[in-house]
Amino acid sequence: MFEARLAQGTLLKKVLEAIKDLLNEATWDCNENGMSLQAMDSSHVSLVSLTLNAEGFEPYRCDRNCSLGINLASMSKIFKCASNEDSITIKAGDEGDTITYVFESPNGDKVSDYEMKLMDIETDHLGIPDTTYSCVVKLPAAEFQRICRDLSQIGESVTICCTKDGVRFSASGDLGSGNIKLAQNANVDKEDEAVTIEMQEACTLTFALRYLNFFCKATPLSPQVTLSMSNEVPLVVEYKIGEMGHVRYYLAPKIEDEADS
């Protein structure tokens, strides 16, 4: 028996919005510590790792570990039926092949439940090593979204260059090129608007903007986004999910164009 109720249902709606465009389907792994999900997009270039801790749910009950294979597009469709103020309860039996979502209005006078078929999904689970990244940049999530959107007008890929002065995003394409530079600013009053850089070593990496734009769908989840980078390893884009967890996107860097250089 698995049952998890989230009073702030809108959080789950946002989580779904954040992953459903990148992943068609995924397996939610539920255990006593909470729910988690790890999946690569179909091209295997990016990876989503999502954690929702049990503490965030009230109540949370997971009698035995279970894996719930879910079509995320369908789940998102169903979640659209929940109002932002509703609480959301996710239920799954031990044996059944269905999952039930219950939406309750705050005063409890409207209760809707939706049942959905579970899927058997064959997935590769990747072992993600703990890495100390040479640059960790924190910036307002909306700012990052804006940068990715703007630069995708210019080119297909963005080069992120992080030095101690700041972080530079650049793209070039047929129509020309563009650079956006953010300097560090620790704004005490508005913590959410601060740009902070923790750097051991400068690094420059190139990524496909297409995926970054997918990642930016998580912007409503958190005011700040964290980019962790080291040369020649995947970028990590992390959004906190309130107090209860995080969604991390990993994106493999582009292959260097060495043939003609």
């Binding site: 590769d124 072992g127 890929s157 390893v233 995947p234 582009k254 043939a259």
Partner: peptide, 23 residues
Amino acid sequence: SKDQSKSCQSHLMTDFFPVRRSN
């Protein structure tokens, strides 16, 4: 295959993180 991959392809996640055969 060679020069296409070099022109604009991203690496794969599996190049960096090993696949756990099963969880």
